[in-house]
Design a protein around this nucleic acid. Structure first.
Lengths: 275, 275
DNA sequence: GGAGCGCTGTATCGTATGTTACGTATTTTG
DNA sequence: CAAAATACGTAACATACGATACAGCGCTCC
């Protein structure tokens, strides 16, 4: 049963021509506000012509544009009157692979942060913000993108940030550059990679401070780590989820940025200028 | 400080003549829906004439009726898009920078999935699971790690998955391999990258089906995309958050894996054997 | 490779909508 | 109580909005 326009669109968007699909997508993206504006505004926001918008609402079964708008308004009114029933997508009773996945992910994040004190995060952020040494980042088979993501941001606000890519032998050569003043951020979740463990051990021996992102069962690298962040990874899927670690990473990025605000702001402006 | 129209009305209703006061009361009674309808409807609902309605909105300080309506819509949009900000006192128990960041991120995810139907995700998953053509993935400056993350997983369960890395000129050379049967997954959030847009356009011309991960303001690439996923990115930080898109990506990975279960399981076992 | 179909945008049209002018009613004030 | 000022509605107006006809284009399917 289709109860609201968003569902109606989702149901029929597959059978729409390109232009009308663009209309549908723009409407969904900022649902339902664009639909309350005039046809001209809607059309220019979607990058199509006015008639395409009208054909779009006609395809949804409405006689004319005002009728379509009234329908949207009724929906809004219903939502506003009962804030509890704000779920536009009804709780996905049967078909849902979405809902369980999302719920599990949200739980993972709450759990992860519940076991993570502000102080701990602040300490790590402070360590990363210290401009004494270099910062290296590396990850495992599936988590290396997280290392890259973090490196991409940190590199903008401070110098000497390096993501270690490529072959194991290449990282090892970088060990020569690492020392007590440096920080190594490692992402390692099951199945833990021996190559990372070996690398972490050698870095540890050289006095490098290790910040470890891992799962709740803790990678063996925890043994060498100065700071350990344990994220929840269980979701109803064949794969583990790195989403919680991703959010921790973003939080850290934000915290480091704030600490480096004075320097960082100037640096960011400078970079913008270079582009 | 008067921040919304309802307060403004409450502030001035005392100084209004009878007719306009009836208009004010009618609007407050079913705020703000009546204000979104036409002057004629508003007036008859309030039991006054059209000019009275216009004088009423003029007294509130608006130049004309459309301006008044836009203001109401902006207010609605602000309410709908940030459910968290509605809570005037955000819980912030520990006071740190963690909680606001986490709360915003969780809201972003809920909001992102609220605008994303199961059907839409299922369609995209089905398209990715089709083993007719190749799958290419690419991202922007900060989102390319998401492309890598997704590519790393998809590549395990099916062949012909390629992450496009390196220089723009290198991707362009890969265009020659792309055709109607292929899928291109693009991650592009503000500030949208011209290079990606150019690439998307050329791929589109070759008939490649584009799946776009973007923010709620929609990258211009949406123009060429077969499927658009609009994630929420706003967080209390100097950076935008890609966490919601990350979770959508994980959800998709899970869905594709499920669809390819028969083939995929064998493939995974085979891969394990190779390691 | 050609014919047919469907999609899309431009330009035009009719109309519903917001706006304004003016006359009447109602209240206010000296 | 009278006179003025303010408020309100009727009716005419102009504009901007939605609707439509039509032609060009690309796409699919023989």
């Amino acid at each position: 049963m289709i109860s609201n326009i968003a569902e109606l669109i989702a149901d029929r968007i597959g059978a729409m021509p390109a232009g009308e699909r663009r209309a549908a997508q723009t409407l969904i993206a900022s649902y339902p506000m664009i639909g309350l504006k005039t046809v001209a505004e809607f059309s220019s926001a979607a990058g199509v012509s006015s008639p395409t918008i009208l054909r779009f609402v006609a395809r949804l079964g409405f006689q004319n544009y005002p009728e379509f708008q009234s329908s949207l308004q009724d929906e809004l009114a219903a939502q506003l009157q009962s804030p509890a029933i704000r779920t536009l997508n009804p709780p996905t009773p049967s078909g849902g692979m979405v809902s369980p996945m999302l719920e599990a992910t949200l739980d993972n994040m709450r759990e992860t942060f519940r076991h993570l004190s502000d102080k701990q995060l602040a300490d790590i952020a402070a360590r990363l913000a210290e401009r004494r040494g270099k910062t290296f980042l590396i990850g495992g088979r599936f988590t290396d993108p997280l290392a890259r993501y973090m490196a991409a941001h940190l590199a903008v606000i401070q110098p000497d940030v390096f993501h270690l890519a490529g072959q194991e032998s290449m990282w090892r050569d970088r060990l020569i550059d690492m020392g007590k003043r440096d920080v190594l951020v490692i992402f390692d979740i099951r199945r833990y990679q021996d190559s990372l463990l070996r690398f972490a051990e050698k870095a540890h021996q050289r006095g490098v401070q290790i910040v470890l992102f891992t799962d709740q069962w803790l990678s063996p690298i925890a043994r060498f780590a100065r700071h350990v962040i344990a994220g929840r990874t269980a979701v109803p899927s064949a794969w583990d989820s790195s989403a919680a670690l991703f959010v921790v990473a973003e939080t850290l990025i934000g915290a480091v940025t704030r600490q480096l605000e004075a320097d960082g702001a100037r640096r960011i402006r400078e970079m913008e200028g270079l582009r």
